[in-house]
């Protein structure tokens, strides 16, 4: 690397970073995240090469000379400048055309996973959580309800891999994931179970969810008991008062 000019080193680092993000991460990163990280890499290298004047001259000098040209440059250099100056607007024109051309690709989703619950569901508490005397009994009852109704989608390990799961997109929620029910209050789960996918607000794409509206099939007591079971089985604690 010692003989490679600074601008070349920067180019190599940039390309290597892109290749690493594109091909070394599994499952692959979404293009939006790669774009975000590569923007950061670009900012990072530009800052690095411009901290000290010597580096800045070494990096930007060749670019300035290429753009401005000089009296002694050869024909090939002039030609390459002309090519670059034509290629750059063409490239952006192509990008602009591509992004505006009608496409069959669905647009990138910014689906809200955990939308705000309606006001009437805020501040509800699981009536069975404080009943320490019958806690195990209520958990067992909740488990029974789960295995009679929910297991087909959410799976017998509560990991979202029920027998119907592969038929859905969105896949059923994985309750064993530490970033799902542990981050939510029980009232939130009660809302989701009660109202199902159809009760989601628009930003959460209710048309994508196959979750039934369980309030039509389960009593309020049963819904609270199944919530008790979900937390007990996974070992997570519900988000509490805060």
């Amino acid at each position: 690397m010692g003989r490679i000019p600074l601008i070349g080193k920067v180019g190599i680092i940039w390309v290597l970073m892109y290749l690493a993000l594109k091909f070394l991460v599994s499952p692959p990163l979404p293009s939006s995240v790669i774009f975000m990280y590569m923007s950061l890499v670009t900012v990072c290298v530009l800052l690095y090469v411009s901290v000290f004047q010597d580096d800045a001259d070494a990096f930007f000098g060749p670019i300035k000379r290429f753009i401005a040209g000089d009296d002694n440059e050869g024909g090939l250099r002039k030609l390459s400048r002309v090519v670059v100056f034509i290629a750059i607007p063409l490239f952006f024109g192509f990008r602009s055309y591509n992004s505006n051309m009608p496409s069959f690709e669905p647009p990138i989703q910014q689906r809200v996973i955990h939308p705000a619950p309606p006001t009437q569901f805020v501040g509800l508490y699981n009536p069975y959580r404080e009943d320490k005397e019958h806690f195990a009994e209520n958990v067992a009852a909740g488990g029974k309800i789960f295995f009679e109704n929910c297991v087909f989608c959410h799976g017998d390990k509560l990991d979202g891999n029920g027998i119907f799961a592969d038929g859905f997109n969105l896949r059923p929620a994985n309750f064993t994931d530490p970033t799902t029910i542990s981050m939510l209050q029980e009232a939130f789960l009660f809302w989701r179970i009660s109202k199902g996918g159809i009760g989601l607000p628009e930003e959460s794409t209710p048309w994508d969810s196959a979750m039934p509206r369980w309030e039509a099939m389960l009593s309020e007591e049963d819904r609270w008991k199944v919530i008790l079971f979900l937390y007990d089985y996974t070992g997570y604690a519900p988000r509490t008062w805060e």
């Binding site: 991460v25 979404p30 939006s32 975000m36 669905p106």
Partner: peptide
């Protein structure tokens, strides 16, 4: 890095859900 990533349909299928398992 957001928790809930912006995804197109292909990426969502490749990830098997809305979240990247690591990121």
């Amino acid at each position: 890095t957001p928790h809930n990533l912006p995804l197109n349909a292909e990426e969502q299928i490749a990830l098997g859900g809305q979240y990247h398992p690591t990121f």
